[in-house]
Structure formats: structure tokens, C-alpha cells
Design a protein around this nucleic acid. Structure first.
Lengths: 214, 214
DNA sequence: TAGATTGTTAATCGATTAACAATC
DNA sequence: TAGATTGTTAATCGATTAACAATC
């Protein structure tokens, strides 16, 4: 068992936020940034920023700031964005299709290689040169291509079924869009995108902010 | 200024998780549940569950468990799910359309009332009886209907522009799907759905879990 | 009563923030 | 040098967990 530097979950969640912003800085040709400026743009305290970056040796220079390029590379390394990963989408409904049309993922090394569904209305379609295949073809497809991740966008009633299927195929990372807590072996990692949960939280914040104004 | 019981952010984030599960319990006719069982299903410790529910008086009975119906109602009250809210979607691309097709939101009191875009290809379309209107019609629409929230699904280059527009119209809650930190007055509340961020986190977890197995 | 499970307090844990010395 | 900003330690804050008494 290889020893890994273990990063905390909050730390990891902040990394993409930095990464996105640093990317735009690079595009614009800015290659120096202070913790204070980052704080201003990202809503993360300068202290937190410095704490976070303290593990990236050589990225900062006292009295000067951080090297945008170095930070960008270091974060990519932490998140493993240098590797190309293959992802399938289980569920070819509107959400699954929207994911397939999204162009941003590939930039970060996540390539959607196929969509699976059972509905004859969508099976056979092509979404941006990504084929929608029948679930029956899943086993063969996964064993042929080396698939790392599966996004789950099926109806709630079939969510865990879909997850089980993916896990059987040896996929150990699930991107779950279904408002359900998936039951899977604990060796499988999950990231949930619970849209309605997020909306409820927004609704709460909204009401709370209105109460304050009274 | 009205005094509001202030709930912590982590507390509020857990509420939808409970709520979803309690809903399904009610559907199946289960009306009693223990903190232990909830813990098992939701991956929240029993201790945490009890801590969370301790503010819902009358929901629990020692030696017996919690009344599912009471909990369900109390959480709905905390989150304000009894109110009907109107939401518009700025950006009629695949993601915006997918949101419009999603039927789950309305159950929780969030009704999508219109989609706005500038692309003549989509303006005039109807997504599940929700019209796609031209942004030029936004001002009139918002002043006529009482809109509470705006989902932002426009291209990244126009994200803050769209947000500003919404804010000008008096909308104070934004559901942001664009991978950008929106700059808005601090009276405006935001919930971000950063898909690519989430995917990067999943990618990290995935790799980390694989390293462990070596 | 015995068994179960809540309600609640206290202990722990960890993340964030503050502060300032180091140093470019 | 003077000014700026990092690097890092220590203090704070708050959330989670443990434990157990209360009570159904």
C-alpha cells in the first residue's frame, strides 16, 4: 500500500475554484498573483489561500506573490488532471445529453465516450459524435474500452440498478445526478450532483436574506 | 429587523437529504424511524441525526424513534418548501432545457416559468409548455410575473452579464451553473452548481482510492 | 419491568483565522 | 533600505462525535 499525502476534503473542494481562476489568468497573460487578490476574487480568505498553497513549494515568493503558472501546474498535479479519463453516461435523457454536449469536461481530461439507454427513441442517436448505445452493449463496451467513470442520469427508480451495473463492470467512480443516496461497496467513490437539494438550499438562503431586510 | 433562528450551513445542507428520504418513507407508508436507521441509509452518524432533529420538538419519542410525518413537515418548514416560487432560466442551451424538462423541482415548490435566450434558433420554442423568450422581453416579463429566482446557464463569457441583468430586475437569488464566481451585490444569494469542479473532485477521489489498493 | 432510543451535555476533532516573523 | 507579501505557528471557532442520563 503506497503512502499518499492525504488532502482534506475542504482543501480538495477549493482546488478547482483556484484552478479555474488561474486558468483565466494564464489566458489573459497574468503570471503573478497575491493571496490578497485571490481572496478578493474567489471569496476565500487570504490566510486560507496561503495555508492552501503552503504545500506547493516554489510557487510563492515573499514580497512578490505567487507564480500563476506554477500554482496551475501544482493543482493539476494534485487533482490528477494530466491523465485522460474515460467516462460513460448511463441515461440518455435531457440531462445525460446535456452532459454529453458540455465541452468543458474534456479540457480537464474527462472524455465522455458513450451514452447508454434503453429507450429506442434515443438509442442510435449521436450527441456530438458520441453514440447512444443500448444498455445491452454495456458489458462489451466497457471491457473493450478502459472506462474509469460513470455518470448516472437515469430515472430515480433505476438509479441503484444502474450504479450496480457500473460497479459490476469494474467502474469504481460514480457521478450521480439522481436524488438518491446510492448503495454501493465502499471501495466505490461517489460525487453527487443533487440539483433539487441545491435548489432547496438556495430557496432557504433566499428567504433568510429577505427576512433580514424587514 | 426580524430575529430569525439561524441554522448553520452544514445543517441546512443536510436537510434536503433527510427530506428526500423521509418523502420516500412516507410514500411506502413507513411512519416511524430511528436515528440509527437513518444513519445507515444516509451515511450521517446517528449522533448527528439526533443533534439535527433536537430542534424539532415533538418529532422524537424516547425508546421509539421519530415520527416520519412530523420530521417531514418540520424540515419543509425550515426550508420554506410550503411556498411556491417562480424561477426563470437564463440560457436556453441544452442545460437550460434539461432543467426545464426536470419535473422534480416543482414538487418542492420551484416552478420554472420561462426561459430566456438570444439565439433565434431556440427563441420561440416550447420546452414542456415553458416558452423560450428573447432576452429583450425579460424586463417586461419579470415586472409582470413575480419572479424569485434565476438559473444561469449561459456561456461563461456572458455569465456575469446575465447575473447583473437578473439582479437589476430585482431577482436576489441565483442558481449558477457557469464555472465562474459571479460578482454580485452581497444582498444577492447564490448557489453554484459547478459541474466541472465536481468532476475534478470525483477524479481526485477516484485516483486516491486506486492508490490505496496498490 | 426490560429494552430501546431519544435528548443533551461534554469532549474531541479539525478547519479556519489571526498574527507576525522571515525574506524577497 | 522600505514595502510588500509569503510561510508558519498558535489561537479560535465551530462542527461532529461520544457518552449517558432521561424516559417512553
Amino acid at each position: 500500500m503506497k503512502e499518499t499525502k492525504k488532502y482534506s476534503a475542504p482543501f480538495i473542494k477549493r482546488m478547482p475554484i483556484y484552478y479555474r481562476y488561474l486558468s483565466t489568468l494564464l489566458q489573459v497573460g497574468v503570471n503573478r498573483i497575491s493571496s490578497n487578490d485571490l481572496s478578493r476574487w474567489l471569496g476565500i480568505t487570504a490566510s486560507q489561500v496561503r495555508q492552501d498553497f503552503s504545500c506547493f513549494e516554489g510557487s510563492g515568493l515573499q514580497g512578490y506573490g505567487y507564480e500563476v503558472g506554477v500554482l496551475h501546474k501544482e493543482i493539476a498535479k494534485v487533482l490528477g488532471l494530466d491523465v485522460m479519463r474515460k467516462m460513460i453516461v448511463l441515461g440518455g435523457g435531457s440531462l445525460g445529453q446535456a452532459l454529453a454536449k458540455h465541452t468543458n469536461f474534456e479540457k480537464n481530461g474527462f472524455k465522455i465516450v458513450a451514452i447508454f439507454d434503453i429507450n429506442p427513441q434515443v438509442v442510435g442517436k449521436k450527441i456530438k459524435d458520441i453514440e447512444v448505445l443500448h444498455v445491452d452493449a454495456l458489458r462489451e463496451f466497457v471491457s473493450k474500452h478502459q472506462v474509469d467513470l460513470a455518470a448516472i442520469t437515469v430515472p430515480a427508480t433505476h438509479a441503484n440498478e444502474a450504479a450496480n451495473l457500473a460497479v459490476e463492470m469494474g467502474i469504481t467512480a460514480l457521478w450521480n445526478f439522481v436524488p438518491v443516496e446510492l448503495k454501493v461497496p465502499k471501495s466505490v467513490v461517489i460525487e453527487n450532483i443533487h440539483l433539487s437539494d441545491s435548489l432547496m438550499v438556495l430557496g432557504y438562503k433566499h428567504r433568510e436574506s429577505q427576512l433580514k431586510d424587514e
